[in-house]
């Protein structure tokens, strides 16, 4: 598997595990909005965002304390993938 796809797969698994979702991780589209738009995405809320932040911190050792950064970084699986890559490269 391409390392890029591998990271996205891991991100989807973390989302499902951390939020205790009863869906197949593979069913989450890479570009689907994670928050707000329940029709096209997951429709997650602010508390879910906090849970995801804690999951990413635990799995990747990346701290996200600024809400503005969090909103952008957790917009979609694609956005989170780029954010994690960027942080790991820094």
């Amino acid at each position: 598997m391409d390392p890029k796809d591998e990271l996205k797969t891991r991100i989807k698994q973390i989302i499902v595990k951390q939020l205790k979702l009863e869906i197949d991780p593979a069913s989450i589209r890479d570009d689907a909005p994670l928050f707000g738009d329940a029709a096209n995405g997951l429709g997650l809320d602010s508390i879910d965002a906090l849970e995801l932040v804690l999951g990413v911190e635990k799995e990747f050792g990346i701290k996200v304390q600024d809400e503005e950064v969090g909103v952008k970084a957790f917009a979609s699986v694609d956005a989170l993938h780029d954010f994690i890559r960027q942080k790991n490269a820094a």
């Binding site: 602010s46 508390i47 965002a49 906090l50 849970e51 932040v53 804690l54 911190e57 996200v64 304390q65 809400e67 969090g70």
Partner: peptide, 10 residues
């Protein structure tokens, strides 16, 4: 405290 984001804390 487990963590926080904006006005939310766990």
């Amino acid at each position: 405290l487990a963590g926080r984001l904006g006005p939310f804390a766990k």
